[in-house]
Amino acid sequence: MSRKVDVPVSDVRRFLEPGPVVLVSSADRGDTDIMTMGWLTVMEFTPSLVGCIISSANHSFGLIRRSKACVINLPTADLIDTVVGIGNTTGAEIDKFAHFGLTAEPAVHVAAPLIAECHANFECRLVDGCLIDKYNFFIFEVVKAQAAARPKHPETLHYLGGGAFMVSGRIISRRSKFRPEML
């Protein structure tokens, strides 16, 4: 192993945020939005709970807070320019679906639209808002999940900070080494 060097604590996200970048779609009172999110956390498996921080300065914040719902959409690496473009614009000024040529499809359980071009879509309802006022932290329950049948392991984007992304790589299976109840 190579010698370790000190890194600024502000850069730890390069090491700790390996999860995929997602596009969060929302809707309220006839207004829709999409935001790029580089961090979220799975909090529980059953029910499926996901936590994330949404800045109160973000247009989506108000839409999601009022509607108490959103869709977490999983883009693939081929959408990288769209992902960056969405992150660099505000839904307060443009219709991001139209501007970026994305297809809004109706969800089953929430008012927020699905993004058809994404590999997977997770319809979410706010189940706990106790940390919103203090930390802008939302806790959602995934109430419906759907994903494309192929590819089984899509190339997803992972934000490293500073405008750099990593694309998911090769798959290494160790399934045979797991206890069945741990899979």
Rank of each mutant, 00 (worst) to 15 (best):
H59L: 06
S60W: 01
S60T: 00
F61I: 05
L63F: 01
R65L: 12
R66G: 07
S67M: 10
V71P: 00
I72G: 03
I72E: 00
L79A: 08
D81N: 15
D81W: 14
V83G: 02
V84L: 05
V84F: 05
V84Q: 03
G85A: 03
G85Y: 05
T90N: 10
T90I: 13
G91M: 05
A92G: 12
A92W: 11
A92N: 13
E93N: 14
E93Q: 14
D95L: 09
F97G: 04
A98G: 10
A98I: 13
H99S: 11
F100A: 03
F100E: 01
F100L: 03
G101Q: 13
G101W: 13
T103R: 09
A104E: 10
E105K: 14
A107T: 04
V108F: 14
V108Q: 15
H109G: 11
V110G: 03
V110M: 04
A111D: 15
A111I: 10
A111V: 11
A112W: 01
L114N: 02
I115N: 02
I115T: 00
A116T: 01
H119N: 07
H119A: 01
H119R: 06
A120D: 04
N121R: 06
E123L: 04
C124H: 07
R125V: 04
V127F: 10
V127H: 09
I132N: 11
I132E: 08
K134M: 11
K134D: 14
N136D: 15
N136G: 13
F137I: 05
F140D: 00
